[in-house]
Amino acid sequence: MATVETRKISKFYTHEQAAVDGIDLFIPEGEFIVFLGPSGCGKTTLLRMIAGLEHPTAGDVLIDDRVVTALAPRDRNIAMVFQSYALYPHMSVFDNIAFPLRARQFAKAEIPGKVRWAAEMFGIARFLERKPRELSGGERQRVALARALVREPQVFLLDEPLSNLDAKLRTSARDELQQFQRRIGTTTIYVTHDQVEAMGLGDRVVVLSQGKVRQVGKPLEVYDEPADTFVAGFLGSPPMNLIDRGSAILGFRPEHFLPIEARETGNDAVRFTFRVTRVEYLGADRLVYGMLEGGAGEAKVLSRLPSTVPLPVQLGERHEFVIGRRDLKFFDRQTGLRTAPIPL
């Protein structure tokens, strides 16, 4: 177990464009942290620099308060799971899992026991004699995890390890992964572009965009209190409604935007006139599309209503909708950063 830290770490593949742009992070011992961001934002690059597979253009990586920037991956005592799993195709599952042990000169007698322990941890003990090509995607992913676990590294690095699994398997694998991490308590960095994964797995989430950290916080924090319009617009499906209100940008989540009947109104609620243009049924929810009227002009927004709440309005009609005052977020028009509430 160990802490991981990056100090002003940057990576320029080309001279103009930074893939990672001066990131400072501190990851305490035993934490499950998730790097979340859209494709191409630099998640993998950041992870590979922590692993030592990529050399930073500037800045340092520290593991357990020790600067490891110049060390080779093998000297950092980390393990990594790749999106492609990167199993050695010519070796049996047993040899795949045993490989890191043999590479680290573990005693010969010790190896079979350790391999069996890691394989049992992920329920793949009966596949030990098979080759990777004879396994399903889910089984391969477990072999990759077992290979990473077997030598009990200080830090786990996982780069979208679930993205090659089908939706159902992904849910159960996510669950298992979290339980497993809780059990062994190893510091874990998990890269994904899937916000559901990030929300469900992370102790904390690092939201990245264009090589920069936009926000770090507990999943609920980044969801409820986005630090800027990027985070607000990236998290949630559908994401936060962002509308232009003169000097500021006003943001609110679709699920907080409800018909007036559905909510106790007091003086903590703000009223809006909403013209419904379309309703989409999603099973448990309905998405109500429409235009916000009055005030500083019209704006397209949407509301997310649980199907248990009746929708008291027909298509094309206007209706009063309300938002709790606390659920309204304000952002600066220029910088996109959160600002203090302004009177509406």
């Binding site: 597979l53 080779a72 990594m80 790749f82």
Partner: peptide, 12 residues
């Protein structure tokens, strides 16, 4: 990825 995995696994 295979090269990277070998490097991480500690292969000389």
């Amino acid at each position: 990825d295979i090269h990277d995995a070998a490097a991480i696994d500690g292969a000389g």
